[in-house]
């Protein structure tokens, strides 16, 4: 009864990469929930345009550039890891971590600018002026960028952990996993950037 070729031909995915794809899908749904909530409220409250004017497009664009570069550098590290070129892996990954730090520095400059203008998570100044609707914009702004920045921080930690091993030529296959996470962070920013900094 088992005459038919009972071995179906399938292409396997290494288990680390498979798990990471699932993690990425899960993360997308988390950010997707936030982004959809933001879009719906943005369409409901045209007054938010007033607040969105205060986001700093220049710093946002700079961050986009930094992340795109980080992504590209990451993929070079990945290719170097496939070819067992430890020196190149270390070099490209260090550049990538540098990009992550640059992003966070930019972000903190941006946050301190906003805070000095009185735009915080709850924006008490706006509330006192009776502009409750406006303060909700800043709540969304901080929760979305904050959660993303937390992911960048986690990415830096993951990269550093992988780099420590990769320097000795160990566990080079993990470079790919770290880099894939890095691309995910990049893609999320690709959607956050137009939402918060361009569509004003």
């Amino acid at each position: 009864m088992n005459q038919s070729p009972h071995f179906v031909k399938i292409r396997a995915v290494p288990q680390g990469r498979l798990a990471l794809w699932m993690l990425i899908a899960g993360e997308f749904v988390i950010f997707g929930g936030l982004i959809i909530g933001y879009i719906l409220f943005r369409l409901r409250n045209p007054e938010w345009a007033e607040q969105a004017k205060h986001t700093n497009t220049l710093l946002g664009a700079l961050n986009m550039l930094v992340l795109l570069t980080g992504s590209y550098v990451g993929v070079r590290a990945h290719m170097a890891a496939i070819n067992n070129q430890v020196n190149k892996v270390v070099m490209w990954m260090s550049v990538s971590i540098g990009c992550g730090f640059l992003f966070l520095i930019n972000k903190s400059i941006e946050y301190s600018r906003e805070i000095s203008h009185g735009f915080t998570f709850t924006s008490p100044k706006l509330q006192e002026a009776g502009n409750n609707i406006g303060s909700l914009f800043w709540s969304f702004y901080y929760i979305m960028t904050g959660l993303h920045a937390a992911h960048v921080l986690v990415g830096i930690i993951i990269f550093s952990a992988i780099l420590i091993q990769a320097r000795k030529g160990q566990n080079l296959h993990r470079v790919e996993l770290g880099v894939m996470y890095w691309h995910m962070v990049d893609i999320i920013w690709i959607f956050l950037f137009p939402l918060l900094y361009i569509a004003k």
Binding site: V13, A25, I36, I39, L43
Partner: peptide
Amino acid sequence: IWIIAIAAVFCLVMFLYGMYIDIT
């Protein structure tokens, strides 16, 4: 992997579709 990626997008599209009329 494509199925996983498409499922995530599908869930989000459904979510947007179901919520839009109650919020915006």
